[in-house]
């Protein structure tokens, strides 16, 4: 597994004249849980969308396990966006079957057992579920894939503390040496125990990329504290 899971070389994305990402160079290895941290509008979501193939680069390139975004890379990436993206009219079970149909790496038993432990009724129509439950269903579907790259955009925002623990626990249980988990979040203090490494990004540019424990050892600070210093308003 010598090849990086996610690699960006000179990655730049313009929206009109606004550079959402500028000359980003980064290489993420497998077997790590990495935090993507930065203020609003720093380019976190743009980076994630580029890795998913939802946006095309203006300049530079992005590679997932060596593949440019396309059919092969999408089969390796499991993406959890901030919003609910499952069709309203499908039942929970239909969503599972859908994922099972399209993704060869989908673990059906895992998804079913996770939903059972969350007590989500299998035949409930998505539209009838509360926002929190919908998010849980999405998380279950995303984490039931044996993907190489997990891209989680604000997975614990807007969720109660118990659910937060459950979500982080699921991420940890799912850990594999062959995959990389990239978590984009504002809730640094809640998440940093779980991170191997962190990325600071601002104005579309890379500010830091380091190991969390190294930073704690060197500076005697938490990532949360360090963030506040670096991105002081």
């Amino acid at each position: 597994m010598s090849e990086p899971t996610l690699e960006c070389r000179g990655l730049t994305k313009y929206f009109g004249t606004n550079p959402a990402l500028h000359n980003l160079n980064i290489s993420l290895p497998a077997g790590k849980i990495i935090g993507l941290l930065g203020p609003n509008g720093s380019g976190k979501t743009t980076l994630i969308k580029l890795a998913c193939g939802l946006l095309t680069p203006s300049e530079g390139e992005v590679r997932v396990c060596g593949y440019a975004p396309g059919v092969e890379s999408k089969a390796l990436v499991s993406y959890l966006p901030e919003r609910t993206y499952l069709p309203d009219w499908m039942t929970v079970m239909e969503c599972i079957r859908y994922f099972q149909d399209f993704y060869a790496d989908f673990d059906y038993e895992r998804a079913v057992s996770m939903l059972q432990s969350l007590q989500v009724p299998a035949n409930a129509v998505m539209k009838t579920l509360s926002k929190g439950t919908k998010e849980k269903v999405q998380l279950v579907l995303v984490m039931s894939r044996r993907a190489r790259l997990y891209l989680l955009d604000e997975p614990i925002g807007g969720v109660d503390p118990a659910a937060r623990d459950y979500i982080l626990g699921t991420i940890l249980k799912n850990y594999s040496e062959e995959s990389t988990v990239l978590i984009s979040t504002h809730l640094i203090a809640d998440v940093e125990k779980v991170l191997d490494e962190f990325i600071f990004i601002q104005n579309g540019q890379l500010v830091s990329y380091a190991s969390t424990d190294s930073l704690r050892e060197d500076l005697g600070k938490s990532i949360d504290q360090y963030f506040r210093e670096v991105f002081r308003c």
């Binding site: 077997g31 849980i33 940890l172 249980k173 850990y175 779980v194 991170l195 191997d196 424990d213």
Partner: peptide
């Protein structure tokens, strides 16, 4: 892996 879930920390950290 079990340690990591129980303690709610990263498995690499536990390994270290």
């Amino acid at each position: 892996r079990e340690f990591a879930v129980i303690a709610a920390v990263n498995p690499n950290t536990v390994q270290k």
